[in-house]
């Protein structure tokens, strides 16, 4: 009996989902032109023929993220930046205690991790440097690089940060450099406009109908897709060290944090 109930419910669920997705056109009927916007993005992402509309990046996602909806991404980065400021405010005045025992995991995990860290760096930089060509980009690369902070804290010990020369203040400085670099790229067209009088727009990447301003799209024959490569590299810096800050704070022991925060956060 139970077998039939299971079978019936599978058939019923499948039929309902099939009905919703096809006859109700919830995700569009095959053959109908209901995915106009997606088509538009895909045709315009890299299209030298549509000179005033293209982003000149074969990676449609990065084109959308840093050009079609670039300002949205800029504010997302700012939100991320603010969230970390909030974390720093909660942990205000808390520093890493200098002397702590370092146990960590077994020698097997430690040795393998030591070898993985340079490999991790190589892969993260590759993901960032190809963000305008292949899937990935600054945020993804930053998340990949930030894994190192977790590895250091878990495999070795939170006190290993100091031993390898990573400190909260350095991480905060590097992520600030990243965000300032993004802001700099955003304002380049405006400065260009002020200096030369040529029409240019905030965050502009490539030529528009009424503006001939364009970031360099190639270095020799290598496509760098104007602003996209700079945004990706700056975002890589901002995100990786933003995560570093958070993971470093989270790896502090509760008793250490309470001790340093004092009574107000006590109980």
């Amino acid at each position: 009996m139970r077998k039939y109930i299971v079978l019936l419910s599978i058939v019923l669920t499948t039929s309902v989902l099939a009905y919703i997705t096809t006859y109700l056109e919830a995700i569009g009927l095959v053959g109908l032109d209901t995915r106009y916007l997606a088509k538009l993005f895909l045709t315009l992402a890299y299209n030298p023929l549509a000179r005033e509309l293209t982003v000149l990046s074969p990676e449609a996602v990065t084109s959308i993220v840093w050009d079609f909806r670039g300002i949205d991404t800029f504010y997302e980065t700012v939100v991320f930046y603010m969230a970390i400021i909030a974390a720093l405010a909660i942990y205000r005045g808390v520093g890493y205690p200098s002397i702590r025992s370092e146990k960590g995991l077994s020698i097997i995990v430690k040795v393998v991790t030591k070898l993985l860290i340079p490999i991790n760096i190589a892969i993260a930089v590759s993901v960032a440097a190809h963000g305008h060509l292949t899937p990935g980009g600054g945020f993804q690369a930053g998340a990949a690089l930030a894994v190192i902070s977790v590895l250091l804290a878990v495999v070795f010990s939170a006190s290993s940060f100091a031993r390898v020369g990573v400190s909260l203040s350095k991480a905060i400085a590097l992520r600030t450099v990243g965000l300032l670099a993004i802001a700099a790229v955003v304002f380049v067209p405006v400065v260009f406009n002020a200096l030369t009088g040529v029409q240019a727009y905030l965050m502009q990447n490539y030529v528009k109908v009424d503006s001939e301003f364009a970031f360099p799209t190639h270095i020799q024959s290598q496509l760098i897709s104007g602003t996209l490569i700079w945004f990706n590299l700056a975002e890589f810096l901002a995100v990786s060290f933003g995560f570093f800050v958070v993971f470093m704070l989270l790896s502090l022991r509760e008793d250490v944090v309470r001790e340093q925060l004092g009574e107000e956060h006590g109980h």
Binding site: I119, A122, S126, Q222, I224
Partner: peptide, 21 residues
């Protein structure tokens, strides 16, 4: 050598851009 090899293999490219980076 390790980092260069991993970078090139992961990127799947030997363009001057990738060799320089």
């Amino acid at each position: 050598v390790l980092v260069f090899t991993v970078y090139i293999v992961f990127s799947g490219s030997i363009s001057p851009y990738d060799i320089a980076i």
